[in-house]
Computed example of a mutant assay.
Amino acid sequence: MIYNKMNKYNWKGYDFIGTVPEFAEKFGYCKTPTFVNAVKRVPRHKYNCMDEMEQRAYEEKRKRAKRAYCIYMNEEMTDSYIVTKEEYLATNLPIKEKLHEPFLLSYRNRVLPYNFIGNSHDEISIRSAMVKYSAEAVKFAEQLLLAAGYFNGSNSVKKPLVKINYTSLYLTYANGISITFDSERSRDGVDNCRLSIIDFNGERIYNGWRRLNSVDEILYYTTINKDSKDASCYLGG
């Protein structure tokens, strides 16, 4: 087929000069319509920390995403080129949809209680107090790690391995996160409950030298995950 009216390009890495349809016919795998953002995408942890009004405003702007057209060079659909609509329609490749999971948000700025009281009928109240403490600590940690970008909000979060050692709690996650919560024994349970340490694959990302009781307060001193994915549903290419 001849494409006299279309631009020819020098396709670096393929040692080929020709139009998009000619290039796709020789090297392409599939094609699909997609979107590119009309607004700048924000990192996941920033999106998580927006309040409801800010999230709504961002989502409205994101709806102005622009239509785009892609050809893909491999089955994994990781190597791609954005082409014009005319070039896309003239390209003889199978259409294969590339799915992008929407980012689901469940962030809350939780507050970690100062103390937990054990069951009154227990001979040693600290044991039941620590069980209550551990349940709340897991919920608190999930929100903090979501906000810091160590959890993906579109996937279910696996529960950590929880170990109780007197007045300390140790949470260990499959993704390399380990968290230490501390407290002090009181007459009817534990008090001065606090998040002390967060490690990620052996690296310290939070060191709680003082008691901070909310997710947002601790997040300010926590190292954010640099590999955190964008919050946008519309990923070009």
Rank of each mutant, 00 (worst) to 15 (best):
E87Q: 11
P33K: 08
P43H: 11
M53H: 10
Y88P: 01
G149W: 07
A38M: 03
P113H: 15
T32N: 02
F116L: 13
H45W: 15
K85W: 09
F116W: 10
E142Q: 12
V36D: 01
E86P: 02
N92W: 07
S80F: 04
S154K: 13
A68E: 04
S125R: 15
T32G: 02
E52K: 11
V111Y: 10
K158Q: 11
R64I: 08
S125H: 13
V157E: 03
F116N: 11
E60L: 08
Y72F: 09
K85V: 05
E75Y: 03
Y29W: 03
A141T: 14
M130A: 05
I124W: 10
Y150C: 05
C30H: 04
K132T: 12
Y58I: 04
I71K: 04
K46Y: 11
N37R: 08
A90L: 13
A137H: 08
I126N: 01
Q143R: 05
E54Y: 09
L89C: 13
A148L: 06
R108V: 14
C49F: 08
S120W: 11
R108E: 15
L89N: 12
I126S: 08
K96H: 07
E59V: 09
V157L: 13
L144C: 03
G28Y: 03
H100M: 11
K163Q: 15
L145S: 06
E97I: 00
R41Y: 04
C30I: 01
D51S: 07
E59F: 05
N115S: 15
A135V: 14
L144M: 00
K63F: 01
V131A: 11
V111R: 13
D79F: 09
K40N: 11
A148G: 10
E76R: 11
Y29V: 00
M130C: 14
K31D: 00
R44S: 12
R56Q: 15
A147Y: 02
C70D: 08
L145H: 03
L161P: 02
D51I: 10
E142F: 06
C70K: 00
F103D: 11
K159T: 10
T84R: 02
Y69L: 03
V111S: 13
M77T: 02
F103N: 11
I124S: 09
Y58M: 12
K159L: 15
R62C: 07
N37H: 01
K66E: 09
A141F: 06
V157K: 08
Y72C: 00
Y47C: 06
K132D: 14
Y81P: 03
L144I: 04
L161R: 14
T34P: 00
S134Y: 10
A90P: 06
V111C: 13
L89Q: 12
I71G: 00
T34M: 01
K31M: 04
A141N: 05
R62D: 12
F27K: 00
Y29F: 06
P33C: 00
C49H: 07
T84V: 03
N155K: 15
E97R: 05
S128F: 09
I95W: 06
A135F: 13
L112H: 08
R56W: 08
K163D: 14
L145K: 02
L99Y: 14
Q55Y: 07
